[in-house]
Design a protein around this nucleic acid. Structure first.
Lengths: 198, 198
DNA sequence: AACATATGAGACATACTGTTTCATATCAAT
DNA sequence: ATTGATATGAAACAGTATGTCTCATATGTT
């Protein structure tokens, strides 16, 4: 793509475009946006947009990819990747990028992005579930849950989390990340306990 | 709209259009469809489509409205609207319209419709939750849950149900509606019990 | 200062939308 | 079977968005 990695023009254009994107999502909703509208707000040529992004979805994906990279970086710092602490880190991350996630997950957001984020979470959930076998302690089928049920539970839990995040951001983060993590973990625990007897 | 309620031409056109819609969703996905594509498959003029529907979303809404009418009719037959039996009826309904829901909720489906269906469910969940106070029996705040939390729980549960339905249909309905209802009710019970202490 | 390249302006072909017109075919009712 | 009503098909239409392309210019980097 770009030979010189740090060209002020490039970073400036991309920054304007990203800011315009979030502003416009909050104002008019992601689905309603056209590329022309975004570039007009960003005071940038449409051709410039297409030089950097395939379409508006690609734009979101690039932003999201960077956010995910930041999240994984934060998680890597944690010694106990398989501990509930991971969810505190997660909600901290969400809080840090609250404007991005709020815009994309909220009322004016994109159902497409919701799906995307849920998919990202499912793997994390699986990892988390496998690392907490005590939740399935009183089960007659402690291991067979996932293969037999073909991932209904992680799917459902991931969906729940995305929904909880959306609710949290739309209500102005009523309580701190720690509390959200605590509730999320408790809920997941209850679900695992309940479904482990199936 | 139509003066003579039963005009063969109308019912035939609408039927072709609806069949084409579901076929095409399964093949190419709802979002990718254009009106022209639908009418071409239905062997009907585009003008005819616009005579009956505002756009492809309106088409889905009309189909969905009829399905909901059928569901409400089935529920009305139940004496105990506030019993878990309602969910058996619900999953029976989903099974009856499996092709419709499968297409619209599944991988090729429409996130917009998922949202729509969840909204429909939230009211049902609230009704269901209010009618089963025993789930909040050991709570210190048995009533204040909804107003205080501003509907996080019903929202999350509705989302879970939609996700469960999607999973169920995409996996070829591995077990009968009764079993899905049983598991759904159990899960909701566990969640209510867990969250009632918050 | 010299070079590289990102940008802006605009043209372009393509596609889809939603509306409209009008002649024709098809239906319902008698 | 004939009549009257109307749903339909074909086509044109303006409007909008997309994604690509060209080229002169401005702006960065070295």
């Amino acid at each position: 793509m770009s030979q010189s990695v740090n060209d002020l023009r490039v970073t400036r254009s991309q920054r304007f475009i990203r800011e315009a994107l979030i502003d416009l999502i909050e104002e008019r909703g992601f689905d309603a946006l056209s590329v022309g509208e975004i570039t007009a707000r960003a005071m940038v040529s449409r051709a410039t947009f297409y030089r950097h992004y395939r379409d508006k979805y690609d734009l979101v994906e690039q932003i999201y990819a960077e956010a995910m990279q930041a999240l994984f970086g934060a998680i890597a710092v944690q010694e106990t990747v398989h501990s509930p602490q991971i969810w505190v880190t997660f909600f901290d991350h969400v809080a840090e990028y609250d404007r991005l996630y709020g815009a994309l997950l909220g009322e004016k957001g994109s159902p497409w992005f919701v799906r995307k984020m849920r998919t990202s979470l499912i793997n994390l959930i699986k990892e988390f579930g496998r690392a907490a076998p005590q939740w399935q302690s009183d089960s007659a089928h402690p291991i067979s849950l996932y293969p037999a049920e073909d991932d209904l539970i992680p799917d459902v839990i991931a969906t729940m989390f995305v929904e909880a995040i959306t609710w949290w951001l739309e209500h102005g983060k009523p309580f701190p990340p720690q509390e959200m993590a605590r509730r999320g973990v408790a809920l997941v625990g209850a679900i695992f306990k309940e479904t482990s007897t199936w």
